[in-house]
Amino acid sequence: MRSSLFHKLLLILFLWIGLSPWIMGQPKGNVSGQGPYTTAIFDSLFEKALYKGSLDISKHHLSGLFYLKRFSGSSVRILFSNELGMNFFDLELKGDKFIVHSCFPSLDRASLLKLLENDFRLLLVPDTTVIRMKRGRSKDPEFLVFGVKTARGSFHYTYDKVSGKIRRIQTSRSVMGRTDLRVYGDMRLQPVKIHITNPAIRLHIRMTFLSN
């Protein structure tokens, strides 16, 4: 009888440990407490930055300057202009909203703008809608890999073990094809280099930090 009670208690304990991430609302597999849901690639204290960059889509090549500025916790403006100063696009991420303030006619395509929205959200806005997270295997011992399902989609996040910073985000399932976003260089508030590729629509964005 005592033994049966002990086994029942043990079973409840195991069940509690196993289910606690769901009961407590924590993503599964997040062992260290650090994970993709806590930060975006750009630091929350980031205010503004100027990048030299280019955007290649299909066989078209556009080069110029990317200017990113955070207005408040929930609003970030992304502006891309050519070297002579003419705007290619002026976009805003405001909470869940995506506002196109201006866009060069040849870039004004709903599918492209949707991709740009998703890519810049991954860069600038922390994802607070994590549904499930699972630690994966990393080929490189210097990195941690997480498979993450959020309201935005499914992603693979690669973290630098030492700095704790995100190095790469790949979309794992998407109608628009896979996006691969890589960042390089250690700066406190923003990465030095950003490469975004989407082979399905032959989109390549390259950005190199110039100044704050």
Partner: peptide, 14 residues
């Protein structure tokens, strides 16, 4: 060259 961003109240100098 001075690019003036009216809404952002910023200037980019090259």
């Amino acid at each position: 060259q001075e690019k003036s961003l009216s809404v952002l109240s910023e200037k980019i100098i090259t």
